[in-house]
Design a protein around this nucleic acid. Structure first.
Lengths: 164, 164
DNA sequence: GGACAATTGTTGTCGTCAACAACAATCTTT
DNA sequence: AAAGATTGTTGTTGACGACAACAATTGTCC
């Protein structure tokens, strides 16, 4: 069946169909090449791994970094606003903030205007920490440049600017 | 409340620091803009959601599609080879194949050459199903084109070709 | 030829993450 | 005042990546 040139063929392919190139890397992807989603996914995994490794000493993951950055740039936002801006669920943000608050990087201040919501702020410690994180994140960004090239990275940012 | 210009202050920022632009979308991202990882992540989420929605009727997710595609293009591969080629863990592939085998799309054939390994093949049903999946995937790919533009999509594929 | 290391598929655990659903407290609307 | 919407919270589910351990089998090395 399929593309198997079975039986009498000189190329080793057993009748049960076990191909003998298991270890080699010449495995075709067929339709997968040309799928943007596949390439983007693989690249996203690589980029996150590099981010996690580069910020490994300070133990900050990409999502945590994005939360800290938004709060730092917009002090006083509510959890709902941060979640909506970053495209994460408010249920998920609760745990993220629990962690960041335990580490004394962020504080929740009960709003007097809307007693349902919390105003989010960096602590003093959080502000200085974020400055360090940003330096490491810039280092990570240079790794990306090295990987795909300076112009390619800029083109990528232009192409995907609408998703930020 | 939200847009309420609170009490006497002209500029809305209470003493507790609750900013009054919770619902609006003019929230700065500061350092996040310029981070390739953030843009790529957001784009990847969008693209996967569109894929899942477009292939929703046939209940096929991106990872499942990639496995079927590779097996279809390279019949007889071992699980190890497929896992390595797609960059997924062989432990994870076990569950994926369990599901696909239950749905009669894939079959594991015990290899006689290496009795540890399984030769992976599409079933006849799996082959015809994959043809349908590919048509739907092509439709999804057109959605991507519509979203970011034809040339941008092609540039993206060129830039990220090294990760496939 | 036989001990030892490596590989393959499998099972299991852990942590991240998206998607929902439900809930109490609190606004908003009418 | 009553009904509806919003905010933060808790919980569940499932996909996914990363590890670790294991039995069966193969490869290697002496």
């Amino acid at each position: 069946m399929t593309a198997t040139a079975a039986r009498t063929s000189p190329r080793k392919r057993a009748s049960n169909g076990a191909a003998r190139r298991t270890d080699a890397d010449e495995i075709g992807l067929d339709a997968l090449v040309g799928h943007a989603g596949y390439a983007v996914r693989r690249f996203q995994i690589w980029i996150f791994q590099d981010f996690i490794k580069t910020l490994g000493n300070v133990d900050i993951r990409p999502t945590q970094y994005s939360v800290l950055t938004v709060i730092g740039a917009n002090p006083g936002l509510s959890q709902m606003a941060v979640a909506k801006r970053l495209g994460i669920e408010r249920a998920r943000l609760v745990h993220l903030l629990d962690s960041l608050e335990q580490r004394k990087l962020v504080k929740r201040i009960k709003s007097k205007e809307d007693r349902r919501s919390h105003a989010l702020h960096l602590t003093a410690q959080g502000a200085t920490a974020l400055a360090k994180f940003k330096r490491l994140a810039a280092e990570h960004e240079r790794n990306v440049e090295t990987k795909i090239g300076k112009e390619n990275r800029e083109q990528l940012l232009r192409i995907l600017a609408g998703f930020t």
